[in-house]
C-alpha cells in the first residue's frame, strides 16, 4: 500500500510504469472485491429476469418497479465499485495535443479552396436555389399549424353571445329554470336554451345564476329591472383571462376565480375587489315571464370574458 504523498500528485497516464502506485487498484484484496462485484452483477441479472417474469405473470406497478429498480441499482453499484476499487487508482493527467493546425495543413486547405473549390462551389447555383426555395416553402407551411393552433376566428363572439331578447334560461341538462326552482343562496351554471347546438354554447354563453333574495334586487344604478325575485346572473368568464368564475362563497357573497383569485361582489354588480381582473363580470339582465320562467331581457351590454384589442 502506497502512502498518501506518493499518490496525491497526478502522474501522466502515458508514462506511468506498471509498478507505479498510481497504477495499483484501491482495493487491498482485488480478488475478493471482484467476487463481491460479481455477486452484485449476478443479483442484478436475477432481478432483470424477475422483471421479465413479473411482466408476464403479476404485472403490478410495484412488482415491475421493484424488480427493475433493484436490478438497475445492483448493476449500478457493481459498475461504480468496479471503477472505484479495481481500476488504477490515479489520479492521472492526460496532456492535450496542440489544437492549432500545422502550417502545411493550412496551406493545403487554402489551396483547395482557391484553386479548385471556388470553381466547383460556384457551379452549384441551381442546386443552391432549389435548396433555398425548398426551405422557404418549408418555412411558410411550418407556419400553418402555428396559425391553426390559434383556433377558429372569434368573429362576432368577441362582442356577442347567443343570449337574445327572451332567451329561456336552462340548466346543464337543458331544463328551463323556473322562478320557484332555486332557494336563496343557491347557485346554478346556466345557458341560453339551445346552447347544445351552437359552437360557442358552452364557452361564451355560460352564466352563473345566483339567488340572493326573494325580492327584486338592484345591483347597480341603471339595472333596476335586471334582478327579479332576487335572481342575479353574471357571465362565468373571468374578465382577466377567461377562467370560469365558479367559486361562490355564499356567506361572503363573493365570486372567486380559481386561476388568479380575482374576487367579485355578488350584491353590487360583480364589482372586482381583489386580484388581477380589470373589470366587473358583465351582468345578464333577467325577467320572469307570465309562466314564471326566467328569461334574458337581451344579450350582455358589454363583451364577456378577457380584454382584447384596445379593451385591455
Amino acid at each position: 500500500m502506497a502512502n498518501a504523498h506518493e499518490t496525491e500528485t497526478p502522474v501522466s497516464i502515458t508514462t506511468a510504469r506498471s509498478d507505479d502506485p498510481h497504477m495499483q487498484p484501491l482495493a487491498q484484496n482485488p480478488a475478493r472485491v471482484e467476487v463481491v462485484i460479481a455477486i452484485l452483477f449476478v443479483l442484478g441479472l436475477i432481478c432483470f429476469g424477475l422483471f421479465g417474469y413479473a411482466y408476464w405473470v403479476i404485472a403490478k406497478p410495484w412488482t415491475l418497479g421493484a424488480t427493475i429498480g433493484s436490478g438497475l441499482f445492483l448493476i449500478g453499484v457493481g459498475m461504480v465499485a468496479w471503477g472505484k476499487y479495481l481500476m488504477p487508482r490515479g489520479p492521472f493527467v492526460e496532456e492535450r495535443h496542440a489544437l492549432a493546425s500545422t502550417t502545411q495543413e493550412r496551406d493545403a486547405m487554402s489551396d483547395a479552396l482557391q484553386n479548385r473549390g471556388a470553381r466547383l462551389i460556384g457551379r452549384r447555383k441551381a442546386l443552391g436555389g432549389l435548396l433555398g426555395g425548398g426551405l422557404g416553402v418549408f418555412g411558410i407551411v411550418a407556419a400553418f399549424p402555428l396559425l391553426r393552433s390559434l383556433g377558429p376566428l372569434p368573429k362576432g363572439t368577441l362582442f356577442h353571445t347567443d343570449w337574445r331578447k327572451g332567451s329561456y334560461i336552462v340548466d346543464q341538462s337543458g331544463r328551463r329554470v323556473h322562478e320557484d326552482d332555486l332557494l336563496v343562496s343557491s347557485i346554478a351554471t346556466v345557458f341560453p336554451e339551445g346552447f347544445q347546438d351552437t359552437d360557442n354554447g358552452q364557452a361564451v354563453d355560460q352564466v352563473v345564476l345566483i339567488r340572493i333574495s326573494t325580492s327584486d334586487v338592484v345591483t347597480r344604478k341603471g339595472r333596476e329591472t335586471w334582478g327579479p325575485k332576487g335572481y342575479v346572473a353574471y357571465s362565468k368568464l373571468c374578465t382577466h383571462l377567461g377562467c370560469p368564475v365558479g367559486l361562490y362563497e355564499q356567506q361572503m357573497q363573493t365570486l372567486v376565480c380559481p386561476c388568479h383569485q380575482s374576487m367579485f361582489t355578488v350584491n353590487d354588480g360583480a364589482q372586482q375587489i381583489f386580484g388581477p381582473a380589470p373589470r366587473p363580470l358583465p351582468q345578464l339582465p333577467l325577467y320572469i315571464d307570465a309562466e314564471g320562467y326566467l328569461r334574458s331581457q337581451s344579450d350582455f351590454a358589454e363583451p364577456v370574458g378577457p380584454g382584447f384589442w384596445e379593451r385591455g
Partner: peptide, 18 residues
C-alpha cells in the same frame, strides 16, 4: 370590504317548487 356585505336571507319555511 366583504365582511360588511349583506348576507342572503335564510330560507325559513321555503322549499324549491321543483
Amino acid at each position: 370590504s366583504t365582511a360588511s356585505a349583506s348576507k342572503p336571507s335564510p330560507n325559513v319555511g321555503l322549499t324549491t317548487a321543483r
